[in-house]
Nucleic acid binder design. Structure first.
Lengths: 112, 112
DNA sequence: TAGAATACCTTGCAATACAAGGTACTAAAA
DNA sequence: TTTTAGTACCTTGTATTGCAAGGTATTCTA
């Protein structure tokens, strides 16, 4: 349990972009919970299982995602999530929101 | 009460960088709650009063900030917050955390 | 003396990341 | 056959925290 200020803030920052980054990942190709977690880990965005499952369910309820079951030779079947048309539309909005935020931080940071 | 997916996500994204952006602003010069809110508004980061006051108090408790009272000719006295040495140290860590996150998003977004 | 503007602050609610704990399937080792 | 390891699914409870709403106090102006 790291309660450091930085660690806590990293969590906070991650928080903000989780749905966004999941949609980004699924826009590039279907994936299941563990594969998404791994993709995020690759870019140092660390997410717990307990975070991602409810989130995928939420995004599915919002109809930004759907899923299909697929057999695996490595264990139990996998629930492959796919982005929907609505998901892609929302993603475009999130792209814009992210750009705006990043620009805002940039401005504050550089003082102009 | 906008419950749209985008609007909600903007809130989430904001959430993650609020402490960071406040420290950035105060690192550039002392400020009081309203002036900080206005600076954030300038870069399209919209924050409510009910958010910023508890947050400043929290950052003060963590000793990242201190404050002094200052008279105003425009109304009641203002509580000017100042970043501490510890605050600057933590800010450096947050700079790094932000850069890492931004880089991560970039990678996911561009697919390499 | 009333109203507007500015400043401070608190309470309660809702959203949500995550730790912890649980189920189930496959494959390989004992 | 049984056990263990690996993979995958999911839920519950807790803690955090942004914000709407509501409240107090000061200064200036009409």
């Amino acid at each position: 349990m790291d309660t450091g200020i930085i660690e806590n803030n990293k969590t906070q920052m991650r928080r903000g972009v989780l749905e966004y980054s999941i949609l980004l990942i699924l826009a590039a190709g279907d994936g299941y919970a563990s594969s998404i977690i791994n993709k995020l880990k690759e870019v140092n965005i660390i997410v717990a299982e307990g975070t991602i499952y409810p989130l995928l369910i939420r995004l599915k309820k919002l109809e930004l995602l759907t899923y299909r079951w697929e057999e695996s030779t490595q264990g139990p079947p996998r629930k492959y999530y796919m982005i929907t048309e609505l998901g892609r539309q929302q993603l475009a909005g999130l792209d814009a929101a992210w750009d705006e935020l990043a620009k805002g931080i940039e401005i504050i940071r550089n003082g102009y």
